[in-house]
Design a protein around this nucleic acid. Structure first.
Length: 354
DNA sequence: AACCCGTGGCT
DNA sequence: TAGCCAAGGGT
């Protein structure tokens, strides 16, 4: 472990001075001098987990307009949260979000905890988010380490240990670097630096407040950090989806199990997805027996750990057709408002010939 | 500890 | 194009 150089504490001074001039203005960020709203900080941090600022923007606006407080969110149903979250991905976040809102509202009087340890107990709040909310919303001295910070620190110290092995060493360094007086600004400054200057490819080192301290920059090896273990290749899974409509303009949908992939979301009734899916026996997975026709084309979609190719079958139903278990009929006009994940919207688009 | 869990943008 | 990456958490 590296001992802090005598000048190390000044690193944060250089960074904060840079932040005061170049901070990003983001919808969930309090202006200088304003008191942050812990609810908005928490909500934004959950949405920003593995998700870009640009993608989160409109979702954050929708959520705070519809649920201005944690109590308002807690008072609504999980189904409404999932509908509003549809398209944002990692749907367990939405379930944990709602569970957390109810806990804070019902057990804590609607006030968020203000320490890392207590925040860490909330559903959907891990080491990063607990530290981020503690630092940003409550100005606690917490070591905030996200992907940006990992990149900045591994470059700053030229850390050869690959991720995720290096995480604990990085956290110790960040703990030391974090100033006592402005921990929240420091955390956001590190993330802004990683997002705008110390980028994964072609970092703009000439503009970096850390340039003269940075070990990898001195060696010209900054783009080689952080070191990472190679990722496994994603297999191709296959499956079938079943689009069945009534002449009066209703379509059959199904609720997926609460846990697992796309948990709790709405789907166009589908087979399970597997590498050895037998397309010849696809109709055995259909929600009901009828005269299915295979549509031309295929839906492709990438998930975190596999690629998916879905064959779509279509059929017509009588108005009197009863919905099978876990299924229900919805108006085609109401489909957009359903909790349909993106892969299901692609299936809808193919089935409707768009 | 390794694996599961979405999506869109960028190179 | 195909892989990489993004304010990670749960199990």
């Amino acid at each position: 472990m590296l001992n802090p150089a005598p000048s190390e504490v000044k690193y944060s001074d250089a960074l904060l001075a840079w932040y005061d001039r170049h901070r990003r203005r983001l919808p969930w960020r309090a202006l200088p001098g304003e008191t942050p709203d812990p609810y908005r900080v928490w909500l934004s941090e959950i949405m920003l987990q593995q998700t870009t600022v640009k993608t989160v923007g409109p979702y954050f606006a929708t959520f705070v307009a519809r649920w201005p407080t944690v109590k308002a969110m807690a008072a609504d149903d999980i189904e409404e949260i999932l509908k509003a979250w549809a398209g944002l991905g990692y749907y367990s976040r939405a379930r944990n979000l709602h569970a957390c809102a109810r806990f804070v509202s019902d057990k804590l009087g609607g006030r968020f905890p203000d320490t890392v340890e207590s925040l860490r107990q909330l559903p959907g709040v891990g080491a990063y988010t607990a530290a981020a909310v503690a630092a940003i919303a409550f100005n606690r001295h917490a070591a905030v380490v996200d992907g940006n910070v990992e990149r900045v620190v591994t470059r700053l110290e030229a850390i050869e240990t690959p991720l995720p092995q290096a995480k604990s060493a990085i956290a110790e360094i960040v703990q030391r670097l974090t100033p006592m007086d402005r921990p929240g600004d420091f955390a956001q400054a590190m993330m802004d630096l990683g997002a705008t200057i110390c980028t994964p490819k072609r970092p703009a080192c000439a503009l970096c407040p850390y340039m003269s301290f940075c070990r990898s920059r001195a060696a010209g090896t900054q783009e080689n950090f952080p070191r990472k273990a190679p990722k496994a290749r994603r297999p191709l899974r296959k499956g079938a989806a079943f689009w069945i409509t009534r002449p009066d303009g209703w379509v059959l949908v199904r609720k997926r199990p609460d846990k697992g992939l796309l948990g709790g979301m709405t789907e166009i009734p589908s087979s399970t997805w597997s590498e050895d899916f037998d397309i010849g026996g696809a109709l055995a997975h259909a929600p009901l027996r009828t005269n299915w026709r295979k549509l031309s084309g295929e839906v492709s979609h990438g998930f975190t750990h596999f690629e998916l190719a879905v064959t779509v079958y279509a059929a017509d139903a009588l108005v009197s057709t009863k919905a099978p278990p876990d299924c229900r009929w919805v108006r085609l006009a109401d489909l957009d408002g359903e909790a349909l994940p993106t892969v299901m919207r692609k299936i809808v688009a193919l089935a409707r010939g768009e």
